[in-house]
Design a binder for these strands. Sequence first.
DNA 1: GCCGTTTTCGGCCCGACTGTTTTCAGTCG
Length: 554
Amino acid sequence: MPSNADAAEMFRTIADLLDVLGEKFKPEAYRRAARSIETLTEDLSKVAARDELRTIPGVGEAIAEKIREYLSTGRLPYYERLKHEVPAGLVDLMRLPGLGPKTARRFWVDLGVEGPAELEAAIAQGRLDSMKGFGPKKIEQIRTALAEARAAPSGGTARMPIEAAFPIAERIVSGLRARAAADAVEVAGSFRRRRETVGDLDILVTSEEPERVFDAFSALPEVREVRLRGGTKETALLTNGLQVDVRVVEPAAFGAALLYFTGSKDHNVHLRSIARERGLKINEYGIFRGEERIGGRTEEEVYGSLGLAWIPPELREDHGEIEAATRGELPTLVRGEDLTGELHLHLSPTASKEDVTRLLEDARRRRLTFLGVVVGGVSDDGRPFSLSTASLSALDAGVGRGLEVARAVEAEAGALPPALREVKADYRIVRATGSPPESPGKVREGPPILLVSHFEAKVPPSPDAARGWVEWARTVGAAVEVGPGAERLDSTAARFARDSGVPLALRTGVGAPADDPTAAVALGFARRAGAGPSDVRLRAPGPRAAPRRPTASR
DNA sequence: GCCGTTTTCGGCCCGACTGTTTTCAGTCG
């Protein structure tokens, strides 16, 4: 059974091949469909079985038919025909930095070059020298790109998990604030939209002195190489290979620029076409009626000029949020300050009484009313662990004054291991590893009251695996914890849980180091899912609450 | 190929930067 990722990759390749053939709008249509398919919360075959392929943004009748054909036969003759028509090597050429479809096509048509190796040979033979538009610099640029691609075959395009990008973004932002004549510094792009992975960082700065900003940025220890530098933007590579774009704008354009550089591309295109319909023009400098700038200092001004409410960045994918804003039906998204309960907190087994006291103080400072602490469990290597009696009594001593403290045990699904049955606990946290159990029956045995499942790295990269756990959580009355893992399918699970009415559990950041991105990333994923405050479980049922009774099957 | 407060056709965002140019094409985001 082909995965969603397989289908998306195929449509992307189709787009590339059509690019080389000189098609104007089809490539973007296929890419848009690929992006939508990638973000589905369930397998394409399920959507197809319900005959709902056309509801996927960017999928019309022609692509829907291709999906059906691909799902039922595992092949797509249209794709195979294109691959036959266009040498595969041309797609490799097109994906080199600085080369695009037009150039790849010219090499193919004018020189008979069908791939990187042949292009290298053509350069060596001087066959590019006589081509119009190819001077020494351009040829050298291509030669370098070819050499780099040969050294790192798949390299360059890998996206970074957002949780890994957080500390990097933080360091760059604070570095710019400290060293440059920067007023506002904001990270835009897919980072601001809290996508699971980021391909680069887009950093927006307002300043009267762009040169100083660029100098300060280039001097940061993380920066390895400046790729290009103009009057308003600089592009650099970091030592870890991540690309960073820094753009400087004037304050009067900050909102328009932030909107533009936050994207997504589809969201921007949609907004700009609405502006055009109204005789307006949106660019990164503002919103214009004719020559006159009528707004752009804030994002609200730009949205407002189109009659729209401000749309949270996490929703800007052109998956219906603009229509919702038009109707005034944007969801109210959960915010950090809504999180008054922490359901899943680990203490070190060696935590002292002082550590526990500090933790409780942190919880009160954050105005938490509920704190669930794991007092015993099974570690990854299968060994049981539990908190010391000193820590436990410190916890008990900290209860009250508006803070309820509960005890949780954590283990995989199924019957509790014997060592954990002795542990006095108010609820149970279930680690979601592998596939969900066929029957939830065993989980209901014994004292556990509430379950919080969370996704481990071992979950196979299929939306249906995450979906299976979410459905299991619904059956047993559990909330689904949203963690910070691109590979753990947290974002997919959050969207599916939200859509099927299963509550989410989020981390508050209590007890965590200030630079721990877990809480911020998980909150972003929940917001991307459209979750509001009422979709989040903030506390477990009371310590002595009756066990949930099995209900008749739905 | 998709899509519709211009819906079954005719549009499809917009500008910076580079290298090659003498006014622009291609790439990128």
